[in-house]
Design a protein around this nucleic acid. Sequence first.
DNA 1: AATTTGATTGTTCGT
DNA 2: ACGAACAATCAAATT
Length: 754
Amino acid sequence: MDLNFYSDLSDGTAQSAESGFLDPQPFNGYDTVSKVHAVMEHTRVQPHDVYFLHFPASADNYLTISGATHTFLSSSETFHTPSLGDEEFEIPPISLDPDSALTVSDVVSHFSELSDGTVAGDSSGAAACVRSAVVGGNDPSFASTFVNPPSQGLERLSLGVMNPSGGGTLLSSTLGIDLGQSIASHFSSSSPMTIDVPLSDVNHGLLGHSQLTTIDQSELSAQLGLSLGGGTILPRPQSPEQPLSTTPSPTGSLQGDDMDDFRQKSVLVDSPVSLPISPAVISMNSSLSGSPALPSSVTPPVLVPAGVRRGGGKPAMGSGMGIGISGGAVKKGKKKKDPNEPQKPVSAYALFFRDTQAAIKGQNPNATFGEVSKIVASMWDSLGEEQKQVYKRKTEAAKKEYLKALAAYRANQLSQPTVEVMDTSASPPSASVTPPAPAPSTSSPVPAPVPSPIPVPIPTRIPQHSPEQNTITNICASNIILDLPQVTTRSRTGAYKPPGSSPNPPTVTKIIISKQMLAAGGTQIHQIPTSMVTVIPARTLQPSLSSSTSSPSISVRHPPPLQQMQHAPPPPRLQQMVHSSAPPPLQAKPRGGGLVASVTTTPPPPLQIKIVPAPLQGELAAPIVVTTATATSASAATSSVPAATLSAPTVALQVAEPTSIVTACSVPAAEVPAETEEFVSGEMEVEVNASPGSEERTSGPPRRCVRAGCTNPPVESKDWDREYCSNECVATHCRDVFMAWCSIRSQNSTTTVK
DNA sequence: AATTTGATTGTTCGT
DNA sequence: ACGAACAATCAAATT
């Protein structure tokens, strides 16, 4: 099935209240949980169900919820929404990328965009409008989520989940959005998901009641921070699967594990002194610590015998498990697991949950676990088999690896109790720490050759997810996906986007990196002078172009750090953001036109990176240019490319040769919609134009491998859609992209960070 | 029963 | 006593 979001921007005028579901009353009786539950029950999305946010381009900007049989909505009902314009957003596959932060940011950005658009449109218009998309009826509370409380929620964007079959699944608009992103990122080329989200219901049930406060900057930043790290890319600490904690604090994460290790070791090895020595321990630490730099910190704990351990009570534990727990919770007599033991692969659903929940949470910080869980479940149900397959495949792959690792682990245990198995899982993490000696093997497509002091966040992350990340595509996608969420400008008017103009990809980011820089081997990339790096949020630009702000253009000169962009959504917060037309994650499909068909496939990373030969550099003020184009922006620059559209954030790496631009690469996983290249500003245009890659793409399978410098013909592969000639190229390409990305990030962080 | 995340609670240790 | 650090539990849903 397809998940499509159609969003409509309402102009901010009154909502057409017609929609029945808007009416608060029906829902008022429920408490959040029950509502949700009830709703869910009724409307459980069937696999075939389609969710979409519909943003009609029509002048009036109504959000149409088409759900044939939606209980609450008639298909005809519409809501005013700000400026998104007619677009169908295709929800990109949820990124496998563990990096929740990104996802979140994306979501946020989307959100913000939405809100922004609304606001802007309205604001510009005059009356403030509520930007939030409210699903559930009038519940102000819901609106509050996205909108500031003060604002009267005059308007809401509602997302409707339509259930063709009849029931409507309730999803909050946010959800829908999130989905889009997450999904997009995750699913590469697989068929797009269409999600019909009846906004109204969703809010109510899920969020409505609880106050969904506007996303706090702090929260966002926190979330973003996780992903971006103040400069570091480190994502939030990984899930249990990965023992490693990317967290900066070595000790914290380590301790727990260390302790375990320690215990083990200690058990195995009689003398405490021996501890440090055991290789196993060391390896673990490194992995655990996640940061290479920390060895010193790491070791200490290890060294310290039991006596020193700081970690509280549990460790002591024998008691801990059973005894200590007061809560009465002694319930499960869990046995302690050997930390070194390979972790069981999580289920497809769990993967999905992991990928999705962050986005949902990001949008609705107040949502409880139960709510989120329900939403995820509904989303899961709504996922098409194809999409599910994606997860299932990952699970399968993870399982295979797990079996391998387990076998190795067991073997080692038998043979050498003291020595721990360094399996795949371990290795990846280590990579971050020590530049991977890259195990050529599958896991480390992204060799983090970055020796430099700057800890490359990415590596840490990537390696960590053994199962998921094994897939090259995943890795790339995960790393690469950057959403530049925000736009500082508010200028955007709601109507801004002509429906027909283009199916816009939500956001496109391009990065131009001079070849020289890359030449260094990529490792040095981060050293690139900040001045060199330019980040241009397309969204911003566009709006600005049309109306007021000039600032964006400036971007060339001062590169706004990505982080800032991501992190700090512009001052106005979400509201402003709303404006930005199509949220990156969500892909806007041209609703009407024939484009739709093309849309189906999708994928793509918003981020494109071009590598420009030195000579070109001169021309270009900044070697690295990151551009983000929002769908809305499309109008400005309808790129030459036709486009495919879509979606998902895709990252393309292009290396421009002096003569011509070499290639546009999309993340293997997804197909890059040609359309992605929309340039708002002139600057952007220039760069954009160059990309032949897009053409290639649109026209058909690339004639040659996408990787810069590789002239081999692409090979057919499910993993990379005939874009690459070999795994090596995929890995290399991803690495390049990643590096570029890192450099940008680092730049941003350095520059941006106060 | 396991997994997903995040909050909460309880325990222990160090100051 | 207080704070820090950790472990365990819980929520709903799926596998």
